[in-house]
């Protein structure tokens, strides 16, 4: 099939958003469904269909969302209402918008992935230490039913 000429293709915009926490195991598919559900809930099915939002990539704690040009503001509003993806609590913080994926990748902030650094005990609970870039430390307790997290700094870890 002959591809559409550039003038007839839709004008896409790409929005990069930071996932919090970075170690969130949600896949691109989970994110896509979560974002669509939030859009439909906040702005309605009609507006949601008009925006044609989809998740292009989801890795390294950053997702790239594609939408029709002119709807970036609505997409960002919908992204602010995302609280859960794939059964995991997550927040999305948009930080860059561009007309091409190449352009948006230039705006990525370099961030290191969390590294596993053993365990620590607070009270009666034992947490797994996930060290994020800088002073940030996420403590994760894997339970049978749910994952409990405690977000601290290296200074707090010394206090505990």
């Amino acid at each position: 099939m002959k591809p559409l000429p550039p003038t007839q293709r839709p004008n896409w915009r790409y929005i990069a958003a930071e996932m919090v926490p970075q170690w969130c195991p949600a896949s691109a598919r989970d994110m896509h469904y979560a974002i669509l559900a939030c859009e439909a809930s906040l702005l309605g099915d009609s507006m949601s269909a008009f925006m044609r939002t989809s998740v292009v990539s989801c890795d390294g704690g950053v997702i790239i969302v594609r939408c029709i040009r002119g709807t970036e503001r609505d997409v960002e509003t919908a992204l602010a209402t995302v609280t859960e993806a794939g059964g995991v609590r997550v927040a999305l913080h948009p930080f860059a918008t561009s007309g091409t994926i190449h352009g948006i990748r230039k705006k990525f902030r370099p961030c290191s992935l969390p590294s596993d650094e053993g365990n620590c005990k607070i009270g009666e609970n034992t947490y797994r230490i996930l060290r994020i870039s800088g002073q940030k430390v996420d403590l994760v307790q894997q339970g049978i039913k749910q994952t409990t997290a405690l977000y601290v700094n290296t200074d707090d870890l010394e206090d505990f």
Binding site: V20, P21, L42, E76, T77, A80, R89, V90, A149, Y151
Partner: peptide
Amino acid sequence: RSLTGLRSVRAFTLLGEV
């Protein structure tokens, strides 16, 4: 109450408009 509950100033502006 959690890290996932915090929002940016930009998100505050957008949600405030809503």
